[in-house]
Design a protein around this nucleic acid. Sequence first.
DNA 1: ACGGCTCCTTGATCTACATCAACAAGCAGA
DNA 2: TCTGCTTGTTGATGTAGATCAAGGAGCCGT
Lengths: 241, 241
Amino acid sequence: MQNNHPFDNAERTGEAIHAGQPLSSLFLVSAAESVTAGKAICWEGDKAQHLFQVEEGVVRLHRIIGEGRRVITAFHFAGDLIGASLQKDFIFTAEAVTECKIRRISRKSFHEEVARSEALGPAYISLLCQEAAAANEQMVLLSKKNAEERLCSFIAKLASRRNPRPRQGLVRVPMNRQDIADHLGLTIETVSRTITKLASRNIIIPEGRHELRIVNLARLIQLSGDADDFSDDSCHRVNLH
Amino acid sequence: MQNNHPFDNAERTGEAIHAGQPLSSLFLVSAAESVTAGKAICWEGDKAQHLFQVEEGVVRLHRIIGEGRRVITAFHFAGDLIGASLQKDFIFTAEAVTECKIRRISRKSFHEEVARSEALGPAYISLLCQEAAAANEQMVLLSKKNAEERLCSFIAKLASRRNPRPRQGLVRVPMNRQDIADHLGLTIETVSRTITKLASRNIIIPEGRHELRIVNLARLIQLSGDADDFSDDSCHRVNLH
DNA sequence: ACGGCTCCTTGATCTACATCAACAAGCAGA
DNA sequence: TCTGCTTGTTGATGTAGATCAAGGAGCCGT
């Protein structure tokens, strides 16, 4: 669909993703399923009978509210679980951003296995806590950051993730502008303009639609607005208030 | 501080809050502590050595990002736990909105007890899932709802919660306008104007600073924009896209 | 290599909400 | 009851980002 280089977009995993993640082993009992880019994996409102693991590729989770407003609450990459924090129904629709390989396990056996094993319970809880922390970050972003800060936060997060191409500051951006916009609470035009502006300031260089070269990571992080940064004039403004 | 009628603001609980919530029992070993309105219970960045339970009153969780921008990620009411979804450090500052009574338990014993008991594990996981769902709702609100929808969502949620005054549609609003603004990603002025507008349309009637009479709950919910509402013309617009 | 897609960029204009600025309403303390 | 302080309301104006509109760039199938 929007995926021109399936092999480039797909994040390689091998069995690497199953190394540090005890929960991953649960998914190995089932065969990997291929999902074409753009296709749904599960639907908001359906009974959440399975959990999924992304083995290869990128997945977006979204919700629609009246009049076709779409919110992408999260992207999931190779190794990530989908549906861990659900109780009954899916509260999001999951769709493949790129060509994906996923595995699934029934919610029932998942919980049985977690109950059975010593190690799995803590791993599961830890995962839920990480999701909570991510959700918190996103709330802060959506609540108080401006367009530039949102983009910088997003790009910095993409860059910090083990990217499949370890080449000099080159970050893969598997999702299209509309996905980014719907994740950051902006429009496609604002995303585009902001990227252009960051490029003109020589912080990043777009290389095609799906790659960004990070020229100045330190500045990018600074501009992301999570600032433990009291180096410049921001101090003064704090004191003013 | 901003609490003029301490007895009215405080949510009564007795032992009622410990009924349906297995995790609550863990907190009964410690004595209840009183917290004056406006005082902090824990600080962002500190080691999260305790979990808290609100026994009486209302607590706000917030984070500050550069230049004094404050985001209130959640309010917690009688019966709610604070810090359940943390791993190491507090990622928020918790402050009493009203005069509060809280109990605490060390993170260590909490996890020991959860590991020990059959019933506690699932209750804990269930709590984490509920928090995740709430965080998702908030992301949608902050990402795509306009000021009116945000206010209506907020008021409807307040109303749906067992309010201490069961009188005809009268909802207590313990927090001040600034708190509401920082929770909804708006300014104090916009909150004020939007309430005035809803009042002029006879959907709510403000009674003093800390109470709202809900005149038309159905309309309020409609306006909150979570619309499973395909009754009116919204259908057409969906089809257009 | 040529239409015909879809996705992206750029420019012009509009608008919801923020910001700035009074002022009013409560309440607290003398 | 008056005085002062904090919180909330209302109005005037400004602006970041949305919306509207028009190309341009990359990719696909033929």
